[in-house]
Every structure is written in C-alpha cells, then in structure tokens.
C-alpha cells in the first residue's frame, strides 16, 4: 500500500521549474533513496512532501493526507532529520527527548517509555544525563534519528543523515534504519554516499527537476550495464 503518492507534481519559482511533473509512490515500510545532483530539485520536493511548501500543481498525498489542505495532519505523521538540523547541544540527552516528545504531543509516560526504548536500542542509557554537546558526532546523529521517530511516525524523512560521519558509525546508522523500516516505518532518505544508495529498496535519481530513473538498485545497474549505483548516477548526471 503506498504511503506517499505523487502524481505530476510541478513546483515553479517564477519561470524556474524546480520540480517538473514528478510521479512516484513509496510503499509502507519501504526504504526509498532519493538521489540527485545539487540543484536537481530534491530539497524542493522534500519540502513539499513534509508539508512545508505547496506544489504549483499535481496530486500529492502523504500518509493519506492531501498536502494542499491537510499539511498540519501530515506534520503530525512524519519525522524529519537532517545533517543541518540537530538537537540542542545545551540540553541533556533526556531533556532533548522530553522536549521533542512534547512537541509531538506525547504524554509524560509515553515519552518516558519511548526514550527508554530508543536509548536502550542505541545502548546509550548511561548517557541520559550528559549534555548533548559533549557527545561524539556519530552518537548525536543516532540520537537525532531516534528523536525523529519518538512519536512513531508513518514516514521518516532523512536528509543526508550520515554526512561526515565515520565509516563504522555510518554503517551502524544504516542498521538502525533497517530496524526502523522493519517495524513498518517508511524511510525516505537522501545521501551523497553512493554505496548507501545500494542499501535502499528502491531509488530514484533526479536531474534538472525530473525523475530520470526509478527502480531497485540491481535493476538500475542492469539497465545501465554498470557495476554500481555511482556509475549509474554519473551516467545520468553527465548527460
């Protein structure tokens, strides 16, 4: 069952067409990779899917809600994490969870239960009282991801979640993504690491505002007759 449905999405800024008739859907529990060169229109599309901006035309439904009329409902059903948006450095781990849990309207008991559960999964219960600023970057990214799913959203949007993270933590991060997806939370992710594209169930590649390729990584490699997604990406971007 698709949780994100996009049909002929167009977004224009003046004469500039940032998104040119995008059509795709994402299934519940899927890990969907959203790739494209800088300026290809990924960020614009992602903002629309998160209910932060309205499309110029086209049909867009997220978690069953219409982005034109029900963006407030969408915001309740999604989680968002990006490399740029991080948690508060001057609050402790626990205070961060409490704050963001509160934003999503969880009760004190729910927050306590979810925090224990999520920290337990990361093995960071011992760091509950630590100020976030004193933790290594890799831990912070994992905590930011946990906070993004504290309210058990239907979809979590990850905007370059592993940028600059060391190679081991990067892989641990993906293991957490897998685990999350296996619980039925849909993961919509962008990345500049092409090996990470291979961890997605399906990927789409954007260029000049359009989706140029959309399939499973292995089908894409077969279609372009190359060995990895990086080469697919280069083929597309260089044309």
């Amino acid at each position: 069952m698709p949780i994100i449905e996009v049909e002929n999405l167009v977004k224009k800024f003046g004469h500039f067409v940032a998104n040119d008739h995008l059509t795709f859907s994402v299934d519940e529990g899927e890990i969907y990779g959203f790739l494209g060169a800088n300026g290809a229109g990924k960020t614009t599309a992602m903002k629309i899917l998160c209910g932060l901006s309205s499309p110029t035309s086209g049909k867009v439904k997220v978690a069953g809600y219409d982005v034109y009329r029900q963006s407030e409902m969408i915001k309740k059903r999604i989680g968002y994490m990006s490399q740029r948006f991080s948690l508060f450095d001057d609050l402790s781990v626990w205070e961060n969870f409490q704050f963001f849990g509160g934003i999503y309207g969880l009760t004190a008991a729910q927050i306590r239960q979810r925090t224990t559960e999520l920290l337990g999964r990361l093995g960071l219960e011992g760091e509950k009282k630590q100020l976030l600023g004193s933790l290594p970057l890799g831990w912070k990214q994992k905590l930011a991801f946990s906070v993004a799913i504290i309210h058990k959203p239907s979809i979590v949007f990850l905007d370059e979640p592993t940028g600059g993270v060391d190679p081991i933590t990067r892989r641990q991060f993906w293991e957490i993504i897998y685990e999350t997806a296996s619980q039925g939370i849909t993961v919509f992710v962008t990345t500049h690491y092409m090996d990470e594209a291979e961890y997605c169930q399906r990927v789409s590649i954007m260029a000049d505002g359009r989706i140029v390729a959309l399939d499973t990584p292995s089908n894409l490699k077969a279609q372009y007759q190359v060995n990895n997604i990086e080469e697919v990406f280069l083929r597309i971007a260089r044309n």
Partner: peptide, 10 residues
C-alpha cells in the same frame, strides 16, 4: 567536496 554531489566531486 563535502555536501557536493558525486559528479561535482569527480
């Protein structure tokens, strides 16, 4: 090359 796409990096 941080935050730059794969093509620009190459």
């Amino acid at each position: 090359t941080t935050g730059v796409d794969a093509v620009s990096r190459i």
